[in-house]
Each structure stands twice: as C-alpha cells, then as structure tokens.
Simulated assay, not measured.
Amino acid sequence: MTDNFRDFTGGLESPATHLVETSPSDTGDLPVTSRALNVGTAGTLRVTTIGGTTATVYIAAGIPFPVRVTRIWQTGTTATGIVVMY
C-alpha cells in the first residue's frame, strides 16, 4: 500500500492514526490520551480532560468529537460503542 503522507509529521490537527474501543471506568484512566472520541450510540460521556477538568458532554453518534481526555467515567455516561481516537 502506498502512503502518500508517510514523510509528513502528524500534529493535533492531523487525522487520528489509532482507534481503540474502550469501556468507561470510574477507577482507571485510559491507556493513552485521546485526540478525539466517537460513539456508536449517541449520549452523554462524563470525561476528565488532559487539563484536569471533569464534565459531562453530549456526543452524537458517528461524528468524531475533538477532545483530549484521560478518563471516561462509567457514572454519568450513557453513550455506547465508545472509540478513543489518537
């Protein structure tokens, strides 16, 4: 496969190169900080950002939501099919 962009350095505005399906947890952080989140079923996500703030946000299904988070909380999360993009 040809990768026409292999010689370019990726930045925060670049598309994600890794996708990880994840489950929310009230006790554990994500293994890697997100670049964006995506969900299969719309709903709320209670998240802690890389800056240390915790809030509940609404995420629409199938649309990447650009936010850098370290934790997705089980309590306060109703969205399902969560994919961490980085």
Rank of each mutant, 00 (worst) to 15 (best):
A79M: 06
T44G: 07
L12W: 11
T41H: 13
P31W: 09
I72G: 10
I63D: 07
V20N: 03
V39D: 02
D3A: 10
S23M: 03
A55P: 00
A61G: 02
G62I: 05
M1L: 09
I82Y: 05
P64Q: 12
G52D: 09
L30S: 02
P31Q: 11
A79C: 13
T41K: 10
T77Q: 02
T70L: 13
T33G: 06
I63P: 01
G81Q: 09
M1W: 14
G28K: 14
G76T: 08
G62D: 06
T17N: 12
T75H: 15
G52A: 08
L37S: 04
D29Q: 11
F65N: 02
Y86N: 04
D26H: 04
R35A: 03
L19P: 01
T78V: 07
H18M: 14
T22Y: 07
D3W: 14
L19N: 10
T78L: 07
T22E: 10
H18R: 14
F65A: 05
A60H: 05
I50K: 06
A55V: 12
T75W: 11
V57P: 01
N4F: 14
L30G: 00
T53P: 03
I50N: 01
R71V: 13
V20S: 13
V84P: 00
T78A: 08
T54Q: 05
T75A: 13
G11P: 09
A42M: 04
R46Q: 14
T54V: 12
I82G: 05
T77V: 01
P31C: 11
S14Y: 10
R6N: 02
T70R: 15
M85W: 11
V47L: 08
G40P: 01
N38R: 04
T53E: 13
V39A: 05
A55T: 12
R68F: 11
Y58K: 00
T41G: 10
T22N: 03
T78I: 12
T80L: 13
T41S: 15
G28T: 06
V39E: 03
I59T: 02
